[in-house]
Design a protein around this nucleic acid. Sequence first.
DNA 1: TGCCCCATGTAAAAAGTTACATGATTCG
DNA 2: CGAATCATGTAACTTTTTACATGGGGCA
Lengths: 189, 189
Amino acid sequence: MALRHAVLAALLHEELSGYQLAKKFDTGVANFWHALPQQLYAELTRLETEGLVTGREVVQDTRPNKRLFTVTGAGLAELERFTAATAKPSFIRDDLLVKVQAVDQVNAEAVLAQLRERAAFAEAKAELFGSLLRTMRGDRDEEEFLRHGDRIGPYLTCLRGLAFEEGNRDWCLRGAAVLEERRAARARG
Amino acid sequence: MALRHAVLAALLHEELSGYQLAKKFDTGVANFWHALPQQLYAELTRLETEGLVTGREVVQDTRPNKRLFTVTGAGLAELERFTAATAKPSFIRDDLLVKVQAVDQVNAEAVLAQLRERAAFAEAKAELFGSLLRTMRGDRDEEEFLRHGDRIGPYLTCLRGLAFEEGNRDWCLRGAAVLEERRAARARG
DNA sequence: TGCCCCATGTAAAAAGTTACATGATTCG
DNA sequence: CGAATCATGTAACTTTTTACATGGGGCA
């Protein structure tokens, strides 16, 4: 039941349509959670019937009409309750880790290729997060911004996203280097 | 459908019972995946009917009997197929991140407390992973072990787990420091 | 004597993924 | 002219979580 809270948190600063929300959750720009469009449309509907968000129709001539959603007082109260409750620890769940775990018994070439691919993906995401952070803090430096800025929440979660992707990248590159080195050693005899 | 592959990967080196497997997956010692006991018992049953693992009954007098599972040839082939297929990117999904995202609008004290708690948890896990790594590499240094050791798969995934938890800890401590500083600033002015 | 560990599950509910559906507009 | 974007969903399926069930042995 955390998707609803993720949606509420995402709508806290901006009024968004389901479509816009979906884009954020999909690309991982909303890097504190991930969800598919269908989930979001369904969740927004549920949240609206429960009075936690309100939608207003925006009629567009050139584009299809859309509904923009805002968090209500009840929605904010619900987020407050959620925030006060204790959170469970989070776990990694990643196909690639499973493959690496098995790398001694299976085709290492395939794993090597996927490590390289993932490293590139992680690097791209890290760069995206980096530029988002620069945009958020403007001309202030980070220390200054975190001391006195408003809206530090999204900044902090983006920092975690950045570190996570940098960690991914570094680990993938390290793993790839190890596998390459071992392949080379086998080739030498 | 990755749980089955996680189970196969976990059983690759050791023969384990459902209970033992559950403990690993629960404490996150099998830090490349996480699953509840019920899932594992169900998955083991399924894997056995599909011939991907075989169980052998071990009769115990003082303890209840148990069934130890091993990966079959078909199981290894299935892992091989899985490894060759392309993996999807992984996303963070964490309650605490949602709470931090909302921290500007909700009670920051609760978030601060949870950041501290999580930092401690992450630190404990990082230490556990650190000692697991030391055990795995024995008296060799890491470079040496990764070059010439066998079973580097579990070592590499454990390295990722370690970096992840260190990242968690550092980020939590940073976030907590920021929130404290802002509280102090508010109190002053 | 009460609580934790061993050991294995079933059943139901919630959450997440995959597949499919529709239709206009803008861009290369 | 075909593909991508805007915009919103429904339906079926898979996966994960929560709650419940059972029963002996060891330990404080």
